[in-house]
Amino acid sequence: MRFRLDKNALIYGYMLSGSRKGVAISVDDLAEGISRDECSWLHFDYTHPDARAWIEQKSELEPVVIDALLSEETRPRATLLKGGVLLSLRGVNLTSGSNPEDMVAIRVWIDEKRVISTRKRPLLSAQDIVALIDANEGPETPGEFVATLANRLIARMQETIQETEDKVAEIEEAVLTAESYSLRSEIADLRRQAISLRRYLAPQREAMLQLQSDRMTLFSTDDHVRLRETTDHLIRYIEDLDSVRDRAAVTQEELVNRLSEQLNNRMYVLSIVAAIFLPLGFFTGLLGINVGGIPGAENPNSFMLFILFLVVIVSLQVWLFKVKRWF
């Protein structure tokens, strides 16, 4: 029975090698069956029911591979299985209005003649490979496909990480010149972004290192060289994220110290004012009680004498504070 597949289930399909290199694969071609003599790439939206049905019923993959390709949650990894390699990689989310740390996952199975990948959200790195294929410069083997995909995923992280570093530098400068409490939330956002990115990139580094193992026979020497270069870039980006995280933490501590110092200075001034007016309030309150016998009540110069007395009290307080070096 011919398997019917909705056209939206298959995102991309191309022949990577042979006489039909660069030829697009349609859902009708899938229904008829694809020759295993030439290398092909099929890229599915795993949330589509028809895509799930085709992978489960027609892909001839092992159950563990099927589960991995259709899994909702996944962690970056590279696993050598019978007949091929199972990959799960992530790239930054560059969709407009989205958070870069909300990374997009792509799951890939490769064997000698097939590349089957799945995703939920659009991934620009997959579009890059399509552009290379259309320009007749695309990968011709599964190993070359993985090397190209990993390279594009890591390359697209550069701008995001550089923007994060620039923001940290701007905040570091602003902390030295500004007194804005809003900087605290900006630093917290940067630290959260750096931590989130690193949380996904660290296991991806391990996956990239596993791809360079001698056991991965699907990769040529050139593929291993490209994977090694890509891994070096990834490690550098992880180190940059560590630096961003540490710089943000130090900047946040400096900001908290400066804000605490400002608060302490203001509280100090208020304490001095309160200390000065404390005895004045005592004397004015004492002489303001409504009972008989208040000294100077009948003397017309009593008010001026009392003001002079208060001035003397304030002068003595100021002298005492200076002696004690309280200001």
Rank of each mutant, 00 (worst) to 15 (best):
E72K: 08
E72T: 05
E73C: 05
E73S: 07
E73P: 00
T74C: 03
T74M: 13
R75G: 05
R75W: 04
P76L: 07
R77T: 01
R77I: 00
R77A: 07
A78I: 04
A78P: 08
L80R: 01
L80H: 06
L80N: 15
L81V: 15
G83F: 08
G84Q: 01
G84F: 01
V85S: 09
L86N: 08
L86A: 05
L86P: 05
L86W: 07
L87A: 12
L87C: 09
L87M: 10
L89C: 07
R90Y: 05
R90G: 00
G91V: 08
G91T: 09
G91C: 14
G91H: 04
N93M: 08
L94N: 08
L94Q: 04
G97E: 02
S98Y: 00
N99S: 11
N99V: 02
P100Y: 06
E101D: 15
E101L: 05
E101G: 00
E101R: 01
M103L: 02
A105M: 11
I106A: 04
R107I: 14
R107E: 13
R107D: 11
R107Q: 15
R107V: 07
W109L: 07
I110T: 08
I110E: 11
D111K: 00
R114A: 15
R114L: 10
R114W: 11
V115K: 03
V115T: 08
V115Q: 07
S117V: 06
T118M: 10
T118G: 02
T118E: 13
T118H: 03
R119Q: 14
R121S: 03
R121N: 02
P122G: 02
P122Q: 08
L123H: 04
L123Y: 09
L123A: 15
L124W: 02
A126Y: 00
A126T: 15
Q127L: 14
D128N: 13
D128F: 04
I129G: 06
I129E: 09
V130Q: 12
L132W: 13
L132S: 07
I133D: 00
D134S: 07
D134M: 14
E137G: 01
P139K: 04
P139E: 14
E140R: 11
T141R: 07
G143E: 12
G143M: 14
G143Q: 13
E144Q: 14
E144F: 01
E144H: 11
F145P: 00
F145R: 06
V146C: 05
A147D: 05
A147H: 03
T148A: 12
L149Q: 10
A150S: 14
A150W: 00
N151P: 00
N151M: 06
R152F: 12
